[in-house]
Nucleic acid binder design. Sequence first.
DNA 1: TATAGGATTGACGTAAACGTAAAAGGTGCA
DNA 2: TGCACCTTTTACGTTTACGTCAATCCTATA
Lengths: 154, 154
Amino acid sequence: MKLVSPGEAVANTNNVPLETGEDLARIGEMAKKYGVTLRTLRFYEDKGLLNPQRDGSTRLYTRRDKARLKLILLGRKVGFSLRDVKQMMDLYDPSGSNTKQLRLALDKSEKQLARLQKQRALIDDAINELSGSMTAVRQMLTERAAPSQASVAG
Amino acid sequence: MKLVSPGEAVANTNNVPLETGEDLARIGEMAKKYGVTLRTLRFYEDKGLLNPQRDGSTRLYTRRDKARLKLILLGRKVGFSLRDVKQMMDLYDPSGSNTKQLRLALDKSEKQLARLQKQRALIDDAINELSGSMTAVRQMLTERAAPSQASVAG
DNA sequence: TATAGGATTGACGTAAACGTAAAAGGTGCA
DNA sequence: TGCACCTTTTACGTTTACGTCAATCCTATA
Protein backbone atom coordinates (compact mmCIF):
# COMPACT_ATOMS: atom_id res chain seq x y z
CA MET A 1 0.00 0.00 0.00
CA LYS A 2 1.11 3.43 -0.92
CA LEU A 3 0.60 6.62 1.00
CA VAL A 4 -1.35 9.27 -0.83
CA SER A 5 -1.65 12.85 0.30
CA PRO A 6 -5.22 14.20 0.45
CA GLY A 7 -5.01 16.36 -2.68
CA GLU A 8 -3.44 13.70 -4.85
CA ALA A 9 -5.24 11.55 -7.33
CA VAL A 10 -6.13 8.38 -5.52
CA ALA A 11 -5.17 5.13 -7.17
CA ASN A 12 -8.36 3.97 -8.78
CA THR A 13 -8.42 0.27 -9.31
CA ASN A 14 -9.74 -1.45 -12.40
CA ASN A 15 -12.59 -0.09 -14.39
CA VAL A 16 -14.48 1.81 -11.72
CA PRO A 17 -14.83 5.49 -12.63
CA LEU A 18 -13.10 7.80 -10.17
CA GLU A 19 -15.21 9.20 -7.41
CA THR A 20 -13.40 12.53 -7.27
CA GLY A 21 -14.54 15.53 -9.25
CA GLU A 22 -11.30 15.45 -11.20
CA ASP A 23 -12.69 13.00 -13.76
CA LEU A 24 -9.38 11.30 -14.37
CA ALA A 25 -9.50 8.32 -16.66
CA ARG A 26 -7.19 5.40 -17.03
CA ILE A 27 -6.05 4.20 -20.37
CA GLY A 28 -8.76 1.59 -20.76
CA GLU A 29 -11.55 4.05 -20.18
CA MET A 30 -10.01 6.54 -22.56
CA ALA A 31 -9.67 3.94 -25.26
CA LYS A 32 -13.27 2.88 -24.98
CA LYS A 33 -14.61 6.38 -24.72
CA TYR A 34 -12.85 7.55 -27.87
CA GLY A 35 -12.75 4.36 -29.86
CA VAL A 36 -9.01 4.00 -30.01
CA THR A 37 -6.70 1.26 -28.82
CA LEU A 38 -4.38 1.36 -25.85
CA ARG A 39 -1.50 1.16 -28.26
CA THR A 40 -2.74 4.27 -29.98
CA LEU A 41 -2.89 6.25 -26.78
CA ARG A 42 0.61 5.20 -25.79
CA PHE A 43 1.81 5.95 -29.28
CA TYR A 44 0.37 9.44 -29.19
CA GLU A 45 2.07 9.98 -25.88
CA ASP A 46 5.33 8.69 -27.24
CA LYS A 47 5.00 11.22 -30.04
CA GLY A 48 4.42 14.03 -27.60
CA LEU A 49 0.78 14.56 -28.43
CA LEU A 50 -0.54 13.55 -25.05
CA ASN A 51 0.89 13.95 -21.59
CA PRO A 52 -1.23 12.14 -19.05
CA GLN A 53 -0.43 12.37 -15.38
CA ARG A 54 0.89 9.33 -13.61
CA ASP A 55 -0.16 7.56 -10.50
CA GLY A 56 2.96 5.51 -10.09
CA SER A 57 3.27 4.06 -13.54
CA THR A 58 -0.41 4.22 -14.35
CA ARG A 59 -1.50 6.87 -16.82
CA LEU A 60 -4.28 9.19 -15.72
CA TYR A 61 -5.91 11.26 -18.39
CA THR A 62 -7.40 14.64 -17.52
CA ARG A 63 -9.96 16.85 -19.24
CA ARG A 64 -7.07 18.46 -21.00
CA ASP A 65 -5.90 15.18 -22.45
CA LYS A 66 -9.40 14.45 -23.59
CA ALA A 67 -9.66 17.76 -25.38
CA ARG A 68 -6.33 17.15 -27.02
CA LEU A 69 -7.30 13.66 -28.06
CA LYS A 70 -10.46 15.03 -29.64
CA LEU A 71 -8.37 17.45 -31.62
CA ILE A 72 -6.00 14.73 -32.69
CA LEU A 73 -8.86 12.59 -33.92
CA LEU A 74 -10.39 15.52 -35.76
CA GLY A 75 -7.05 16.27 -37.33
CA ARG A 76 -6.60 12.70 -38.45
CA LYS A 77 -10.11 12.67 -39.81
CA VAL A 78 -9.39 15.57 -42.10
CA GLY A 79 -6.13 14.02 -43.13
CA PHE A 80 -3.48 15.82 -41.13
CA SER A 81 -0.44 13.86 -40.12
CA LEU A 82 0.27 13.49 -36.45
CA ARG A 83 3.26 15.68 -36.95
CA ASP A 84 1.08 18.47 -38.28
CA VAL A 85 -1.33 18.06 -35.43
CA LYS A 86 1.48 18.23 -32.94
CA GLN A 87 2.96 21.26 -34.58
CA MET A 88 -0.34 23.08 -34.31
CA MET A 89 -1.06 21.99 -30.77
CA ASP A 90 2.42 22.87 -29.61
CA LEU A 91 1.65 26.47 -30.43
CA TYR A 92 -1.16 26.63 -27.97
CA ASP A 93 -0.65 29.11 -25.18
CA PRO A 94 -3.44 29.22 -22.59
CA SER A 95 -2.49 32.77 -21.68
CA GLY A 96 -2.43 34.31 -25.13
CA SER A 97 -4.59 35.08 -28.09
CA ASN A 98 -3.06 32.20 -30.04
CA THR A 99 -3.07 34.19 -33.20
CA LYS A 100 0.01 32.38 -34.34
CA GLN A 101 -1.55 29.02 -33.73
CA LEU A 102 -4.69 29.98 -35.56
CA ARG A 103 -2.76 31.29 -38.51
CA LEU A 104 -0.71 28.14 -38.74
CA ALA A 105 -3.82 26.02 -38.51
CA LEU A 106 -5.48 28.02 -41.22
CA ASP A 107 -2.45 27.80 -43.42
CA LYS A 108 -2.11 24.08 -43.01
CA SER A 109 -5.83 23.70 -43.51
CA GLU A 110 -5.76 25.48 -46.82
CA LYS A 111 -3.01 23.23 -48.05
CA GLN A 112 -4.74 20.16 -46.77
CA LEU A 113 -7.98 21.23 -48.39
CA ALA A 114 -6.15 21.54 -51.70
CA ARG A 115 -4.70 18.08 -51.23
CA LEU A 116 -8.10 16.65 -50.48
CA GLN A 117 -9.59 18.23 -53.55
CA LYS A 118 -6.81 16.88 -55.70
CA GLN A 119 -7.30 13.47 -54.20
CA ARG A 120 -10.97 13.62 -54.93
CA ALA A 121 -10.22 14.49 -58.54
CA LEU A 122 -7.85 11.54 -58.79
CA ILE A 123 -10.42 9.25 -57.31
CA ASP A 124 -13.05 10.49 -59.69
CA ASP A 125 -10.69 9.80 -62.56
CA ALA A 126 -10.04 6.34 -61.26
CA ILE A 127 -13.73 5.67 -60.85
CA ASN A 128 -14.43 6.70 -64.40
CA GLU A 129 -11.54 4.74 -65.80
CA LEU A 130 -12.47 1.70 -63.80
CA SER A 131 -16.14 1.90 -64.74
CA GLY A 132 -15.10 2.12 -68.35
CA SER A 133 -12.97 -0.97 -68.30
CA MET A 134 -15.62 -2.84 -66.36
CA THR A 135 -18.05 -2.16 -69.15
CA ALA A 136 -15.50 -3.39 -71.64
CA VAL A 137 -14.84 -6.55 -69.65
CA ARG A 138 -18.54 -7.25 -69.37
CA GLN A 139 -18.78 -6.88 -73.12
CA MET A 140 -16.00 -9.38 -73.63
CA LEU A 141 -17.64 -11.80 -71.26
CA THR A 142 -20.98 -11.70 -73.02
CA GLU A 143 -19.24 -12.05 -76.35
CA ARG A 144 -16.90 -14.76 -75.26
CA ALA A 145 -18.76 -17.33 -77.37
CA ALA A 146 -17.39 -15.59 -80.42
CA PRO A 147 -13.74 -16.40 -81.11
CA SER A 148 -12.76 -12.75 -81.33
CA GLN A 149 -9.70 -12.25 -79.14
CA ALA A 150 -9.73 -8.76 -77.83
CA SER A 151 -6.43 -8.58 -76.00
CA VAL A 152 -6.66 -7.98 -72.31
CA ALA A 153 -3.21 -9.07 -71.26
CA GLY A 154 -0.22 -9.66 -73.37
CA MET B 1 33.30 -8.47 -78.79
CA LYS B 2 30.61 -11.11 -78.58
CA LEU B 3 29.44 -13.42 -81.31
CA VAL B 4 25.78 -13.11 -82.20
CA SER B 5 23.91 -15.53 -84.43
CA PRO B 6 21.89 -13.95 -87.25
CA GLY B 7 18.46 -14.45 -85.72
CA GLU B 8 19.39 -13.17 -82.30
CA ALA B 9 18.72 -9.75 -80.98
CA VAL B 10 21.81 -7.73 -81.67
CA ALA B 11 23.31 -5.87 -78.78
CA ASN B 12 22.05 -2.37 -79.28
CA THR B 13 24.30 0.13 -77.70
CA ASN B 14 23.20 3.21 -75.91
CA ASN B 15 20.01 5.01 -76.72
CA VAL B 16 19.70 4.25 -80.44
CA PRO B 17 16.41 2.54 -81.27
CA LEU B 18 16.85 -0.94 -82.69
CA GLU B 19 16.91 -1.29 -86.42
CA THR B 20 15.25 -4.69 -86.50
CA GLY B 21 11.49 -5.08 -86.85
CA GLU B 22 11.38 -6.66 -83.38
CA ASP B 23 11.13 -3.30 -81.64
CA LEU B 24 13.00 -4.38 -78.55
CA ALA B 25 13.67 -1.67 -76.04
CA ARG B 26 16.25 -1.38 -73.34
CA ILE B 27 15.35 -0.29 -69.89
CA GLY B 28 16.15 3.36 -70.46
CA GLU B 29 13.88 3.66 -73.47
CA MET B 30 11.09 1.87 -71.65
CA ALA B 31 11.39 4.14 -68.68
CA LYS B 32 11.20 7.28 -70.79
CA LYS B 33 8.43 5.98 -72.98
CA TYR B 34 6.18 5.13 -70.07
CA GLY B 35 7.27 7.71 -67.56
CA VAL B 36 8.60 5.34 -64.96
CA THR B 37 12.03 4.95 -63.40
CA LEU B 38 14.52 2.22 -64.03
CA ARG B 39 14.04 1.14 -60.48
CA THR B 40 10.34 0.71 -61.09
CA LEU B 41 10.88 -1.54 -64.10
CA ARG B 42 13.34 -3.69 -62.20
CA PHE B 43 11.00 -3.77 -59.25
CA TYR B 44 8.10 -4.94 -61.40
CA GLU B 45 10.30 -7.64 -62.81
CA ASP B 46 11.38 -8.69 -59.37
CA LYS B 47 7.72 -9.01 -58.44
CA GLY B 48 7.05 -11.18 -61.45
CA LEU B 49 5.01 -8.62 -63.36
CA LEU B 50 7.44 -8.27 -66.24
CA ASN B 51 9.76 -10.73 -67.88
CA PRO B 52 11.98 -9.02 -70.41
CA GLN B 53 14.36 -11.03 -72.54
CA ARG B 54 18.05 -10.75 -71.94
CA ASP B 55 20.94 -10.00 -74.18
CA GLY B 56 23.62 -11.12 -71.84
CA SER B 57 22.63 -9.24 -68.75
CA THR B 58 20.87 -6.42 -70.56
CA ARG B 59 17.09 -6.41 -70.41
CA LEU B 60 15.25 -6.25 -73.70
CA TYR B 61 11.57 -5.41 -73.54
CA THR B 62 9.22 -6.73 -76.21
CA ARG B 63 5.77 -5.64 -77.35
CA ARG B 64 4.42 -8.07 -74.84
CA ASP B 65 6.25 -6.36 -72.00
CA LYS B 66 4.97 -3.04 -73.17
CA ALA B 67 1.41 -4.27 -73.19
CA ARG B 68 1.84 -5.66 -69.72
CA LEU B 69 3.38 -2.47 -68.45
CA LYS B 70 0.44 -0.50 -69.81
CA LEU B 71 -1.88 -2.78 -67.92
CA ILE B 72 0.14 -2.42 -64.75
CA LEU B 73 0.01 1.34 -65.00
CA LEU B 74 -3.71 1.30 -65.67
CA GLY B 75 -4.18 -0.97 -62.70
CA ARG B 76 -2.20 1.29 -60.44
CA LYS B 77 -4.11 4.28 -61.69
CA VAL B 78 -7.40 2.79 -60.63
CA GLY B 79 -5.92 1.79 -57.32
CA PHE B 80 -5.15 -1.89 -57.64
CA SER B 81 -2.17 -3.21 -55.75
CA LEU B 82 0.63 -4.76 -57.73
CA ARG B 83 -0.34 -8.04 -56.21
CA ASP B 84 -3.85 -7.73 -57.60
CA VAL B 85 -2.51 -6.80 -60.99
CA LYS B 86 -0.20 -9.77 -60.99
CA GLN B 87 -2.95 -12.10 -59.92
CA MET B 88 -5.10 -10.97 -62.81
CA MET B 89 -2.31 -11.04 -65.36
CA ASP B 90 -1.15 -14.46 -64.26
CA LEU B 91 -4.47 -15.84 -65.36
CA TYR B 92 -3.93 -14.80 -68.93
CA ASP B 93 -3.79 -17.68 -71.38
CA PRO B 94 -3.06 -16.70 -74.97
CA SER B 95 -4.75 -19.86 -76.19
CA GLY B 96 -7.99 -19.65 -74.27
CA SER B 97 -11.08 -17.53 -73.89
CA ASN B 98 -9.78 -16.15 -70.59
CA THR B 99 -13.19 -16.24 -69.07
CA LYS B 100 -11.66 -16.92 -65.70
CA GLN B 101 -9.35 -13.96 -65.99
CA LEU B 102 -12.15 -11.68 -67.04
CA ARG B 103 -14.35 -12.80 -64.20
CA LEU B 104 -11.61 -12.27 -61.67
CA ALA B 105 -10.90 -8.85 -63.12
CA LEU B 106 -14.54 -7.93 -62.95
CA ASP B 107 -14.84 -9.18 -59.42
CA LYS B 108 -11.81 -7.28 -58.26
CA SER B 109 -12.98 -4.23 -60.13
CA GLU B 110 -16.32 -4.22 -58.39
CA LYS B 111 -14.63 -4.36 -55.03
CA GLN B 112 -12.17 -1.69 -55.99
CA LEU B 113 -14.96 0.51 -57.27
CA ALA B 114 -16.68 0.16 -53.94
CA ARG B 115 -13.49 1.11 -52.15
CA LEU B 116 -13.04 4.12 -54.34
CA GLN B 117 -16.56 5.26 -53.69
CA LYS B 118 -16.09 4.84 -49.98
CA GLN B 119 -12.88 6.79 -50.16
CA ARG B 120 -14.59 9.54 -52.03
CA ALA B 121 -17.24 9.71 -49.37
CA LEU B 122 -14.58 9.93 -46.67
CA ILE B 123 -12.81 12.67 -48.54
CA ASP B 124 -16.02 14.58 -48.96
CA ASP B 125 -16.61 14.28 -45.25
CA ALA B 126 -13.13 15.49 -44.57
CA ILE B 127 -13.54 18.40 -46.93
CA ASN B 128 -16.73 19.46 -45.25
CA GLU B 129 -15.35 19.09 -41.79
CA LEU B 130 -12.21 20.95 -42.70
CA SER B 131 -14.08 23.75 -44.42
CA GLY B 132 -16.21 24.10 -41.35
CA SER B 133 -13.31 24.45 -38.96
CA MET B 134 -11.58 26.83 -41.31
CA THR B 135 -14.59 29.08 -41.15
CA ALA B 136 -14.51 28.87 -37.38
CA VAL B 137 -10.81 29.66 -37.24
CA ARG B 138 -11.28 32.63 -39.52
CA GLN B 139 -13.99 33.83 -37.19
CA MET B 140 -11.68 33.56 -34.23
CA LEU B 141 -8.97 35.40 -36.06
CA THR B 142 -11.20 38.31 -36.97
CA GLU B 143 -12.54 38.41 -33.44
CA ARG B 144 -9.19 38.03 -31.78
CA ALA B 145 -9.23 41.65 -30.68
CA ALA B 146 -11.97 40.69 -28.25
CA PRO B 147 -10.71 38.85 -25.16
CA SER B 148 -13.19 36.00 -25.64
CA GLN B 149 -11.26 32.76 -25.39
CA ALA B 150 -12.87 30.14 -27.57
CA SER B 151 -10.87 27.05 -26.83
CA VAL B 152 -9.00 25.58 -29.77
CA ALA B 153 -6.52 23.45 -27.94
CA GLY B 154 -6.67 22.37 -24.40
C1' DT C 1 -4.62 -18.26 -2.64
C1' DA C 2 -5.81 -18.71 -7.30
C1' DT C 3 -7.61 -16.32 -11.11
C1' DA C 4 -9.14 -12.77 -14.02
C1' DG C 5 -8.47 -8.02 -15.50
C1' DG C 6 -6.08 -4.16 -16.15
C1' DA C 7 -1.60 -1.91 -16.71
C1' DT C 8 3.50 -1.19 -17.88
C1' DT C 9 7.78 -1.05 -21.04
C1' DG C 10 10.31 -2.77 -24.93
C1' DA C 11 10.87 -4.02 -29.33
C1' DC C 12 10.18 -6.20 -33.71
C1' DG C 13 6.65 -6.48 -37.60
C1' DT C 14 3.59 -4.57 -41.32
C1' DA C 15 2.08 -2.49 -45.64
C1' DA C 16 3.55 -0.42 -50.69
C1' DA C 17 6.38 1.02 -53.92
C1' DC C 18 9.91 2.26 -54.88
C1' DG C 19 14.56 5.70 -53.63
C1' DT C 20 19.22 5.67 -53.24
C1' DA C 21 23.74 4.50 -52.91
C1' DA C 22 27.66 1.35 -54.06
C1' DA C 23 30.66 -1.03 -57.00
C1' DA C 24 31.34 -2.62 -61.38
C1' DG C 25 31.16 -3.51 -66.49
C1' DG C 26 30.25 -2.46 -71.41
C1' DT C 27 30.10 1.00 -75.42
C1' DG C 28 30.78 4.78 -78.58
C1' DC C 29 33.05 9.00 -79.55
C1' DA C 30 36.69 12.60 -79.65
C1' DT D 1 42.94 6.60 -74.00
C1' DG D 2 39.64 8.80 -71.40
C1' DC D 3 35.14 10.56 -70.66
C1' DA D 4 30.31 10.30 -70.73
C1' DC D 5 26.51 7.35 -70.61
C1' DC D 6 23.95 3.26 -70.00
C1' DT D 7 23.41 -0.92 -67.57
C1' DT D 8 23.81 -4.54 -63.89
C1' DT D 9 23.16 -6.60 -59.01
C1' DT D 10 22.77 -6.14 -54.08
C1' DA D 11 20.80 -4.33 -50.32
C1' DC D 12 19.55 -1.02 -46.91
C1' DG D 13 16.40 3.14 -46.28
C1' DT D 14 11.92 5.64 -46.37
C1' DT D 15 7.14 6.76 -44.84
C1' DT D 16 3.02 6.42 -41.25
C1' DA D 17 0.50 4.76 -37.60
C1' DC D 18 0.03 1.73 -35.22
C1' DG D 19 -0.32 -4.17 -34.49
C1' DT D 20 1.35 -7.77 -31.97
C1' DC D 21 3.82 -10.26 -28.95
C1' DA D 22 6.55 -10.84 -24.56
C1' DA D 23 7.57 -10.57 -19.89
C1' DT D 24 6.09 -8.48 -15.70
C1' DC D 25 3.41 -6.20 -12.23
C1' DC D 26 -0.59 -4.82 -9.45
C1' DT D 27 -5.17 -5.34 -7.56
C1' DA D 28 -9.69 -6.95 -6.43
C1' DT D 29 -12.58 -10.72 -5.81
C1' DA D 30 -14.28 -15.41 -5.15
